[in-house]
Design a protein around this nucleic acid. Structure first.
Lengths: 218, 218
DNA sequence: CTGTGAATAGCACTTGCGTGCTATGCCAAG
DNA sequence: CTTGGCATAGCACGCAAGTGCTATTCACAG
């Protein structure tokens, strides 16, 4: 029936990419017809390659994998995309699925699992490994009750700074309100970001809101 | 390590319940210690039965399985619940997961799959069969596509840009996702800010949220 | 047919944000 | 007493965000 399953692999780390490609090529009837190291290559090479399925890494140099999904989907609406990555935060997973990914697998599983997952997706299903499913479930449960504030270990002063910023104040205004230097405000943000594992104010808000975006309920 | 895995099964159709119970009891170290035909029975019998995991049907006489989840969770916060049902609508699946279910399996799979899924959940994961995962993905993608109409005189495109930013995306990522230039993204923000009478993204969020700050409800 | 508004895009520029690094004073736990 | 966490502060640098301005295309209403 299927003359051939044509696969594209997008992954920046060459050794890892090779390993995946080998595992996939080893299966009869499958062939990796496109290997790409970043999003730009992917967008250039994949549309013309007649692929049936795309394996896409999330952390790529330049454009992130998630950002590339909508464009890949626009060019190839019917080709399923599987995310294959080490990133397991609920927010990233949900973003990828919203963007159009059909599956999300964490690196670290065996190659036989990978092959089985690809089969599932080709058969019209979607796949999430148990670890990924767990993150998705966490996402739902947090958005439901936001019961556990998670208490990221922020100090009272850090919360104070955050509250003012959350009301639209900028660094200079915050420093005036609290009677401290702007540099100190910046240091508080620095420490907050580190504790939350983010690198921007907006990301911090999303994280503290349990993944609910800033327009939730508007 | 584990002296015994104690399981509860809630399912109204007796024959089906028997089949499940047999399959689970057949595994060494597992024992079904509670069989219930409806939610009321479940709430009466399960809390005292020292169970490690609950298999719960969705369609039950009287209270639905989903409605029973929060109460079971309140009595036994740490005991995972797996939904086992024929209902595969995205809304029902999402509701169950929001309510606190750790997994969702469609009836019709083999008993060996069932056993494997229970193992995954006991190991701390969450599980979704490919068919269920597919529904969840559909849910996310519809949620992203369906958009609110203009209430502040903002155009559809402007809302689209805002929503991505509200999830923590920065200008460059937004431009990639929408397939437009960064300058165009900036222009959209420019117009948004003018319409709202603000001059920063955070101010725009506060304004759109009716003055409620970004940490409201956290 | 023409005007208006939306979406697109570019360029130059300023400002604020985020980060890397260092440093001091304080206070409580060990 | 010393260690460690917290709050304080400074400086320099790169980059994202926001601003001012212009311009093209397209659809649609007048």
């Amino acid at each position: 029936m299927n003359p051939e399953v044509r696969i594209a692999v997008v992954e920046d780390r060459a050794e890892f990419r090779r390993a995946i490609v080998c595992a996939l090529n080893a299966r009869a009837g499958w062939r990796v017809v496109a290997e790409c190291a970043d999003a730009a290559q992917a967008l250039r090479n994949i549309p013309g390659a007649q692929v049936n399925i795309v394996l896409l890494d999330l952390l790529l140099p330049g454009t992130s994998g998630t950002a590339a999904i909508p464009q890949l989907k626009k060019a190839l609406p019917k080709v399923p995309i599987i995310m294959l990555t080490v990133v397991d935060s609920p927010e990233e997973i949900v973003s990828a699925l919203e963007a159009g990914a059909s599956g999300y697998i964490l690196k670290g599983g065996s190659t036989s699992e990978l092959v089985a997952n690809v089969e599932d997706v080709l058969a019209g299903g979607a796949i999430m490994s148990p670890a990924v499913a767990r993150r998705v479930v966490e996402y739902f449960q947090r958005r439901q009750a936001s019961s556990a504030p998670a208490e990221f270990g922020l100090t009272a002063r850090e919360w104070e700074v955050l509250r003012l910023a959350a009301r639209g104040r900028q660094h200079g205004e915050i420093s005036m309100s609290l009677g401290i230097a702007v540099n100190t405000v910046k240091n508080h943000f620095r420490n907050i970001y580190e504790k939350l594992g983010v690198s921007s104010f907006t990301d911090a808000m999303v994280k503290l809101r349990g993944g609910r975006d800033l327009l939730d309920g508007v």
